[in-house]
Amino acid sequence: MRIDYEKRIFGLDLMRAIAIIMVMCSHTLWIAPEMRGITRKLFSVFGILGVDVFFVLSGFLIGRILYKMYTSKDFTFKDMSYFWVRRWFRTLPNYYLTLVINIIVAIYIGNQLPDQLWKYGFFLHNFSTELPWFYPESWSLSVEEFAYILGPLLMYLVLFFRKKASRPRLFVQVTLFILLLFILSKLWYNNEETIRHMRHWTLNVKSIVIYRIDAIYYGVLAAYISIVKPKIWYNIRYLACGFGIFALIAMNFLIPIKGWFITEYPEFWNVWYFVLKSIAIGCTLPLLSQIKSAPKLIRKPITYISILSYAIYVFHYSIIMQLMKYFIPSEPMEGLDLVIYLLVYVLIVFVVSYVVYRFYEKPMTDLRDSSRIKKYFE
């Protein structure tokens, strides 16, 4: 697999690699449910944090694309459509492939399929109601897809009615409107519903599209600042990153120390936990987005993990781990046997992800840059 390191930003690859490693670590608790102590606590936090790193990073990357497209004089609906097509060529092939495989796996091992399976085909399975316990990691992909549609569509409609307005100003106004809108949606949920326990929170708030789209738009806001205020973006890089990391650590350590549990502090969990976490992650971007390279010994494995991260994400849990657990249950294992089991699991995940990326994901992504598709949108 050839990698053009000149076109990559190591700091952002590092973010993506850390995010997928966090998600994988959190899911190993299914292999080793008896894990205790600080490791279990860390891994539990990693699952929640890792996906949000993906969200904010995704927003930052698409935000820079959207801003440049939106502020150009020749911006049209075709440009916006081409943006969507490019995103769909990047995200949909892996999603639908793994959706089909998940259906086959569920039938094979005797698991019940969701009553409204068709909703998975349109990313509606977790739009506003409880996430079904089938292909659970797909919840974040629904959030991504609707975020890709919502922002550009609102920006286009606002520009349609305010053609003479400053486009940079419209861009940031729409972004701030989306952030406010989804804070209000979470406040509404907090006033209308009662959180009973963390699993209820996970399935009814954390994983629901209408409460989580704003996570991506904190990244979009960061992209706007990086383009419009480049000197400030550069000058605050160390201070902002230090603050972001400190805030993430402090917030997740203070929760158990201070007893900020969901039953006593529902508004913190339903609303402000998401907001503070996204802002803290966004604060790491000024520094990480400017780290262009690293020593080869570090750069190469991090870049490989980053490139394979999407395939790893959609294959590692509900397909690979579920099949391993079905054929070779890990519950009776301990000590060296459990370590070997985990190592084999990680090896299988990376081999499968490489094969999928090399022979399916990459060829599908390359289609979006084909002359035929580009010509259609000219």
Rank of each mutant, 00 (worst) to 15 (best):
I210G: 08
A215H: 08
Y218G: 00
G219D: 06
A222P: 06
Y224A: 02
S226W: 09
V228D: 07
K229E: 03
P230R: 06
I232S: 12
W233I: 03
I236P: 07
Y238A: 08
C241M: 07
G244K: 02
G244A: 05
A247H: 09
A247C: 08
F253V: 12
I255M: 10
K258Y: 09
G259Y: 07
I262L: 05
Y265T: 13
E267M: 10
E267G: 00
W269I: 00
N270G: 06
N270K: 10
W272N: 06
L276Y: 08
L276Q: 08
K277W: 07
I279A: 05
G282I: 05
C283R: 09
T284M: 12
S289N: 11
K292A: 11
S293E: 14
P295N: 14
I302C: 03
T303M: 09
Y304K: 10
S306G: 02
S306V: 00
S306D: 05
S309L: 01
Y310Q: 07
I312R: 04
I312K: 05
F315E: 11
Y317G: 13
I320Y: 12
F327W: 13
I328D: 00
I328P: 00
P332L: 04
E334C: 15
G335H: 14
L336Q: 12
L336N: 13
D337A: 15
D337M: 14
L338P: 06
V339S: 15
V339L: 15
V339H: 13
Y341E: 01
L342Y: 07
V344A: 04
